[in-house]
Design a protein around this nucleic acid. Sequence first.
DNA 1: TATTATAATTGTACCGGTACAATTAATCAA
DNA 2: TTGATTAATTGTACCGGTACAATTATAATA
Lengths: 236, 236
Amino acid sequence: MLKYQQIATEIETYIEENDLQQGDKLPVLETLMAQFEASKSTIIKSLDLLEKKGAVFQVRGSGIFVRRHKRKGHISLLSNQGFKMDLEDFQITSEVLELDLRKPSEEVAFNLNMKQDEDAYYVKRIRYINGKTLCLEESFYNKSIVTYLNNEIASESIFHYIKEGLGLKIGFSDMYLKVDKLKEEEANYLGLEKGAPKLTVETIFHLTNGQPFDFSKVTYNYEQSQFFIQANSHFL
Amino acid sequence: MLKYQQIATEIETYIEENDLQQGDKLPVLETLMAQFEASKSTIIKSLDLLEKKGAVFQVRGSGIFVRRHKRKGHISLLSNQGFKMDLEDFQITSEVLELDLRKPSEEVAFNLNMKQDEDAYYVKRIRYINGKTLCLEESFYNKSIVTYLNNEIASESIFHYIKEGLGLKIGFSDMYLKVDKLKEEEANYLGLEKGAPKLTVETIFHLTNGQPFDFSKVTYNYEQSQFFIQANSHFL
DNA sequence: TATTATAATTGTACCGGTACAATTAATCAA
DNA sequence: TTGATTAATTGTACCGGTACAATTATAATA
């Protein structure tokens, strides 16, 4: 692992182990440089990484402070895949409803930047959180990138397999959110009545080189759905 | 403006003016260094900024590429305040329903990190997008930070006033999303029927020094609400 | 006591440079 | 033509350093 990543991880661990709260001050740069035996720019890089992740914020002339929100039980929309929920990673279980290889529809082909005569894996799953139905998920994977999938993988973590098993590097994703009313079929899967609210999240995942490899539509059970997003200064 | 910010802006402008698309390659680092008469680290800093904003992605050993999504008409959840909508900034109009100074509830005091005997501005607005009701917004501002507000400011952009008028620097925000059914009062404001879906977004805005100054609850009209989020590699 | 000026602290912008890793292009062998 | 090897391209990690800007603490002043 790279030095600056390693340092970032250690700082993060330090924050958690000492249960630091929002606003608590971290050691000054000079100290961190000495402590981790790294140059100023390397420490800065670690801190920038932590700032992007929303773990700290830096105040010029003042110090480096812990950033930590107060509410529990929210799913982080950004720390996707793994459904990291505040501190604890929740145990999400998945029931695979369908898994096959098919030709993509025009919509899917468009989003995955592939031709309609190429193959795509299709996976339909229900995901549970603490035994309750969390969401209904339909995903399409470009087979020329994700070369193989099976039921066992799909019932565990597909992303873990893509990263570790296939050695692919995931780069960035575009997410589209829409609120609407549940259709009958969706309502049945989620155990809700037709017409109840739903949140639909369509996500296109790309490799580090920009290739889209996964297009997924997730329909959330509104009763279980509380989300969390952190935004940084450059947006405001 | 700082050099690296200036360069980032110019690169962004270049992308828009030449209508570059996702995957199009930018000039190599050496060229950018020469073109902007800056050192490598400064160019890197500009590119990092653009990467955070989701405008480009860098592929080691290959080049720097434009990142641009394909769908139009989505509100960016992160580029908050100003409601930047894809390329065009939409003209959002606001109708101020209430504006007064009041003691915060326990919930508000908690989120703004203030005492209940301190003062907070309360603003209730309906916001329209292209003449249609977009959302109902209730905001609380810590008066010791946002020292003054009036109807005129609230009907325009409060954030613009906070930045330009008061000279405050906005740092980061925490957002909490929840999907639910509209209550009668909310439904009336939004011109929808009671029980229809809604998206509620609670946001706590902080200054660069970490102080929370604005707590707002926004209820979106689900018919007008399509959102967009970009996530980067460090999350995945 | 409150206000203002000054100094100390602390992070940021910007520069320069070396070694390296990932990708792509070119070359050669089968 | 295919596949493997090598070389060229291109961005990244890490180091070092100087000048500066924002904040906070201290001292001086009213």
